[in-house]
C-alpha cells in the first residue's frame, strides 16, 4: 500500500514539473516512428519464420489468402491490418458485431481474398495491444422441440465477430472496468435477466419476464424502462427475442407472445463464473446442485 502511494506521489511530482499539456504526447509521437519501424521489421521476421515452420500444414485456403496478400505492398497490408483493428474497436464501442462483409466492403475492397491473412494479423495486433481477440458469434440456438424451423443459412459459421477479453480471468474480477454506477446497474440487470432465463429452462416469455421484474420492483421504476432496456439487450446481441410458437397461450391474445433466450454475445462475453455466483446468491439453498453443468449446457460454454 505504501509503495502504491509513493508511486502516486512520484507521478504527481513529475506532472508538476511538466511544462505543458502536449508534451508527453509529442514525445511519443516522435519516438513512435522508430518504434513502429522496429515493430514492422520484427513482424516481417515472424511472418517469414512462421511461413517456413508451417509449410507442411498450410491448407489450400490460406495459400490463396497468402497469394492475394502478396499483391499488397507492405504499407498497404499494414494499412489494412490497422483498419480492421480500428473497425473492430469502433464496432465494439457501439456494441455491434463486426461482420466479415464489413471488413471486405470497408477495408479490403478488391483484395477480399486476402481476408484470412489480414484478419489473422489484426487478431495478433488486438491481442498484443489490448489483450482482446475477435470471437465468432455462435449460431442461434433453438429449443429442441423441433417445432421451430431453423432460421437462415446452412453455413456452419455466422461470420460475425465480437471482441472478447482474453486477459486472465482473475484480472477481470476487479472492478477496474466499471465506470459509473449507471452502467454497473445495467450490467447487473443483464445478469438478472440472463439468470432468470437460465433457471427457467433457458427460455422466458415476455409475460414471465414482466412478472419477475414486478416482483423485483423493477417495473414502473423511474430508473429503468424495461421494454427499452430489453430491446437494447436484443440489439446488442445479449438476448434473442422470438415469437412464441406455442398455440396454447389463449390469454393475452392481443399482444404477440414473445420469448427471450440468451443471445450470441452473452455466450461469448458473460463472465460465466459471475453468473453462477450470482445465481447461487439469489437462490441460496435452492440453487440446483449441478448449476455449473446447467450453465454450461445453456450457454454452450465449456467451463472446465
Amino acid at each position: 500500500m505504501s509503495s502504491r502511494n509513493r508511486r502516486n506521489r512520484i507521478v504527481l511530482d513529475e506532472d508538476e514539473t511538466e511544462a505543458g499539456p502536449s508534451r508527453p504526447t509529442r514525445r511519443t509521437a516522435l519516438g513512435n516512428e522508430g518504434a513502429g519501424n522496429v515493430q514492422k521489421r520484427r513482424r516481417r521476421d515472424e511472418e517469414e519464420s512462421e511461413a517456413s515452420s508451417n509449410e507442411g500444414s498450410v491448407n489450400q485456403h490460406s495459400t490463396i489468402a497468402e497469394k492475394a496478400a502478396q499483391k499488397l505492398t507492405t504499407e498497404e497490408l499494414e494499412r489494412k491490418v490497422k483498419d480492421v483493428v480500428r473497425l473492430a474497436l469502433f464496432s465494439e464501442h457501439r456494441k455491434q458485431p463486426i461482420k466479415r462483409d464489413d471488413i471486405v466492403k470497408k477495408v479490403l475492397h478488391e483484395h477480399s481474398r486476402a481476408f484470412q491473412v489480414v484478419f489473422d494479423k489484426a487478431q495478433e495486433r488486438l491481442e498484443d495491444i489490448f489483450g482482446m481477440s475477435l470471437a465468432e458469434l455462435p449460431k442461434k440456438s433453438f429449443s429442441t422441440g423441433g417445432i421451430r424451423k431453423p432460421v437462415g443459412n446452412k453455413d456452419k459459421t455466422t461470420k460475425s465477430y465480437v471482441l472478447k477479453n482474453i486477459l486472465p480471468q482473475e484480472y477481470r474480477e476487479t472492478d477496474i472496468i466499471s465506470w459509473e454506477k449507471n452502467n454497473e446497474d445495467i450490467m447487473g440487470l443483464l445478469t438478472i435477466v440472463l439468470s432468470l432465463i437460465h433457471v427457467n429452462g433457458r427460455v422466458l416469455s415476455d409475460d414471465q419476464m414482466t412478472h419477475y421484474f414486478r416482483r423485483l420492483y423493477l417495473v414502473n421504476n423511474d430508473k429503468f424502462d424495461l421494454e427499452k432496456l430489453l430491446s437494447t439487450f436484443v440489439k446488442q446481441g445479449y438476448l434473442d427475442k422470438q415469437k412464441t410458437s406455442r398455440t396454447d397461450q389463449s390469454q393475452n391474445s392481443e399482444k404477440e407472445p414473445l420469448e427471450y433466450r440468451w443471445g450470441p454475445r452473452a455466450k461469448i462475453e458473460m463472465p460465466e463464473s459471475n453468473l453462477i455466483k450470482f445465481i447461487r446468491a439469489i437462490f441460496g439453498q435452492d440453487a440446483p446442485p449441478d448449476l455449473d453443468k446447467q450453465v454450461e449446457r445453456s450457454s454452450g460454454i465449456d467451463l472446465t
Partner: peptide, 8 residues
Amino acid sequence: NTKLNTID
C-alpha cells in the same frame, strides 16, 4: 501510446 500509434 507507442503501441496505440501503430493503429492511429
